[in-house]
Amino acid sequence: MDIPPIESGAGMKIAVCAKVVPEQARRIDPETKRLDRSGEQTLNPFDANAVEEALRLKGDDAGAEVVLVSLGPERSLDALRKALAMGADRVVLVADEAAAGSDLVASSYALAQVLEREGADLILFGQQANDSDGAVMWAAVADRLRRPLISQVAELTVSDGTLRGKRQTEFGYDVIEAPLPVAVAVSDAINEPRYPSLKGIMGAKKKPQQTLSLSDLGVDADRAGEAGSRTEVYAIGEPPPRGETQRIDDDGTGAEKIVEFLLERKAL
């Protein structure tokens, strides 16, 4: 008997790799030379685009599942619940002291171990982490999982087990296809993430939230954290001096002030 073609998203299992980042007042701790993560935390805004795209693909298909996968301290669960409130089904968080300070090599290894267990048809990433400006994790994870990869996707469709993505490069627009299972990084232009509804927020706490340690995943301590990392930070310094900048708050005379400034700088 012929198997009917898979419609967009039908029964699909989608994993979204998400990062929890400091909400504001970002600083680097001069002691540890790591980003200070002691303040309020939030879901990396670029990952909300990946969550939204996963939810769009799932639609109202009860057979499809959206699972959030993240690395970070236990308290990251608070911020990850935003994705559950948006509609994601569950969270798997790798929380382990020994994973703190992981670089690309160490993080991608741990993530790949979780994703291997989850066995998703589609692994989605946001376009960058807004704390480290990293925009490469997907390529490392795809290589570890030996899966095809499409990055910077601004338009995405799935049909008959094939994903088609349109993305922008330095030279124009590419259209790339790959069979499932596939790793995809989406651009922040792909959608407008929904706001969680009150019902969604209320329901989020009851959704499954699993915490795993490195040993649960079979990750040796020497492949995680600083021990498993191949890069290091030597020093934190000041940026080079730049020309004078001035900033004003518009009090209704903003336009006049711009004209004055342009005349002063002979730019008009």
Partner: peptide, 15 residues
Amino acid sequence: ADVAAGLAARLDAGL
């Protein structure tokens, strides 16, 4: 960027 990060994983090399 995708080539470099793929290599980082393949060679366990710092990027």
